[in-house]
């Protein structure tokens, strides 16, 4: 059996959806034989690999780095699954859109900071924030959406199960926005 080449990535989210993934508990053992995990917070690979069958993406797109990597992910993956509300709606990560990134930087680096002596935002090494936080599908084509905050483990399991077996499921039975 050819194993499914899997990648998972955590962009602008809280890692809760990845935690939910682990919450599949013993079902992970059932799923493990089907997958080769090439890239993920769970493994230690630095570069996003090529020829990925499925990439599961948690989190919204908030920085120029996020935007760059999601394009690479799209180019290198057959299928993309948007996992959780941040990836699908922007959710908590996009709440700063109501105030704009500038106001958030202002607050974080000036108003609340005691030691920012040279009075500048960090602008090298760290990625630059986009003007707007956006959900994945505003930047690239997304094949599957699995909402929830975090997406319940049951929903992840049913979805992965369906993908392995090539069946279609009605995900609204297992999850919804805010679940």
């Amino acid at each position: 059996m050819n194993k499914i080449r899997l990648a998972t990535i955590w962009l602008d989210g809280c890692s809760g959806c990845h935690m939910s993934f682990l919450d599949m508990d013993e079902r992970l053992i059932e799923l493990a034989p089907y997958f080769d995990v090439l890239y993920s917070p769970y493994v230690d690979t630095k570069e996003f690999p090529e020829n990925v069958d499925l990439t599961i993406v948690e989190g919204a797109l908030s920085s120029d780095h996020d935007l760059e990597i999601i394009k690479k992910i799209r180019a290198n993956s057959k299928l993309i699954l948007a996992l959780g509300d941040c990836a699908i709606t922007g959710n908590i990560s996009a709440m700063k859109n109501l105030y704009k990134s500038e106001a958030v930087l202002q607050r974080g680096y000036f108003e609340l900071s005691d030691i920012n002596k040279d009075n500048r935002y960090p602008s090298t090494v760290v990625p630059k924030l986009l003007d707007r936080v956006i959900p994945l599908h505003e930047a690239v084509k997304v094949d599957y959406f699995l909402p929830g905050c975090p997406t319940p483990a049951d929903a992840i399991y049913e979805m992965i199960h369906a993908l392995i077996n090539g069946t279609i499921i009605d995900i609204s039975k297992y999850t919804r926005f805010g679940k």
Binding site: A82, I88, T89, I134, F145, P147, I171
Partner: peptide, 10 residues
């Protein structure tokens, strides 16, 4: 399962 139009951020 996702909005078909971009959010307005009002």
């Amino acid at each position: 399962d996702h909005s078909l139009v971009p959010y307005i951020d009002s």
